[in-house]
Design a protein around this nucleic acid. Structure first.
Lengths: 293, 293
DNA sequence: GGAAAGCCATCGGCAAACGAGATAGGTGCG
DNA sequence: CGCACCTATCTCGTTTGCCGATGGCTTTCC
């Protein structure tokens, strides 16, 4: 049993046929058949049931499949580890929440790019759920998400603590009156966003129900419309005064218990931490270095 | 880069020489040289420094080495997973503390062996520290140890809660007087045992210092000598009445906080849980099944 | 200083494995 | 029944891998 055998095996399992797998592997069908047969002989039992429309996994094949993926992942990771000579370089794919990007990351991105020109940084934004999935599937090396996550395959470190607040049009004094108005609109970044769920909970707790949610794709659009009085939103308070000037929107604090959100950095427990990632985390905040250990 | 290349690589790294590795791999030296050179070409950088006494790993080689072990482990595990058709069979190596064996396991061993005759069960006893190391090194599939362990690579489940007590010669009424005696001897199973540390703490807290520790290798020897008045020991209370008859030694309870010890079952988070292991855990205590999930 | 031992790199011969193409056999569909 | 689609098997070059022998290098021990 060798890694290349498992690559053949995985391709057959995925495509459901020897011929299709051969196509995908850029070889011919007879070749695939032979390798699979050899693998089956080696393991002492059939991995596929053959039938007229292709093949399907046997019970033994199903047990083997996850290992095929693991071996292939580990080999790729080994190659990256060897290539990584301690000087940050190569591709680095990081995930982040939109708000974290605006608040914590974007101010430092230029700096990082200038400092490590040989790193090809990709920053993916998405919801906490999407990012977790991406890290688990090894599509992204790590991500800043809304914590706590508490997943056995993920290592997580708290890196930022934010305080959420309601934002309204400037000059609004009586938040409760606004919340009580019949046609209150809440503007959120994405409907699946974790802040949106939090917002709904908080509103419900104050007896505000049936709020209409609008979904704007960018923070800029949200703050512009909130400032213009279209509706309210809930975002980290430190966006005001940092990224956005004071006075653009009205700020209404929440009780500490409701306001607190922690941003954690997650990565696969079993994955290699590249030098590029280490450097990135160190650059974001010197106190965050522990996330790379 | 293939799994067999990495096997060659690991052998060379371990033996420190191509010729020695060839010997170990049952092949010739020229072969090893070629494979290593090919691997280096594939990875684009040298993995070994050559010198007159053999070879040593370069920095890149050091980075690769852990992956070689991981690949080989994963392949072996895959084979086991494929062979494991759900009916418990094959080798099963379990670790356990001596006391846990006596108290919880030994009564069920015969039953398990009769129920699953095709499982080759090996039970290794040792200290918590030794067993943890064994699990991490994959020498044993899982182990019952003194918890909590709290290691990122290990999954742990509390399976038993024991209460420790002092044991003395039968008929001893005044434990404090005994503890105050000048030539008090404490008998422990092994000096590295976790109960021994606990015992020392408890004695210190009561102002008893400078106790001589004797190390007897078996529980039987300990209980015999304690019963004869040679010294005291500290063991799970439920040994009395279960494994040993009441009256063989004197029992002196401890306060609940000091007495409580939990026995946890640990296994590698990333390792395959064989059907044999599942069956074993289910047989030990139906409530323990969660440890296998 | 010179012989010997230990080590790695390289080369040529040979066998096994591999990849490609062709063919046969089986099944479902119109 | 013919066609489309699938897998199994066979043959034939080519490639790869393994082996044994040889040579160059360094260290060690007369």
């Amino acid at each position: 049993m060798d890694a290349s055998d498992l690559k053949f095996f995985a391709a057959v399992a995925r495509t459901g046929g020897m011929a299709r797998a051969a196509d995908e592997l850029n070889t011919v069908q007879s070749n695939v058949t032979t390798r699979i047969r050899r693998l089956e002989e080696d393991l002492g039992q059939p991995l596929f049931d053959r039938h007229s429309r292709g093949v399907t996994l046997t019970a033994a094949g199903k047990r083997l499949l996850p290992y095929a993926a693991r071996i292939s992942d580990t080999l790729a990771e080994a190659r990256r580890a060897v290539d990584d000579d301690g000087r940050p370089q190569g591709p680095l794919v990081i995930g982040s929440l939109e708000t974290t990007t605006a608040l914590r990351l974007s101010p430092r991105l230029a700096e990082f790019a200038a400092l490590y020109p040989s790193v090809d940084l990709t920053l993916r934004t998405g919801t906490t759920r999407e990012l977790i999935e991406g890290v688990l599937a090894r599509r992204i090396e790590g991500a800043f998400v809304c914590g706590p996550v508490d997943h056995p395959e993920l290592a997580e470190t708290t890196v930022f603590n934010e305080r959420l607040c309601f934002m309204t049009a400037p000059g609004v004094r009586d938040l409760d009156a606004l919340l009580g108005s019949a046609d209150l609109k809440a503007i959120v970044l994405r409907l699946g966003c974790s802040y949106r769920q939090r917002m709904e909970e908080i509103l419900t707790r104050r007896g505000v129900v049936g709020v209409r949610f609008l979904e704007f794709g960018t923070l800029e659009a949200i703050v512009a419309c909130v400032g213009a009085g279209l509706g309210i939103t809930m975002l980290p308070k430190s966006l005001i005064g940092g990224v956005w000037p004071v006075g653009r929107v009205g700020v209404h604090d929440l009780p500490a218990a409701e306001a607190a959100v922690e941003t954690v950095f997650i990565r696969r427990r079993d994955a290699y931490v590249s030098s590029a990632l280490k450097a990135f985390l160190a650059g974001v905040d010197p106190a965050v270095r522990s996330a790379a250990e």
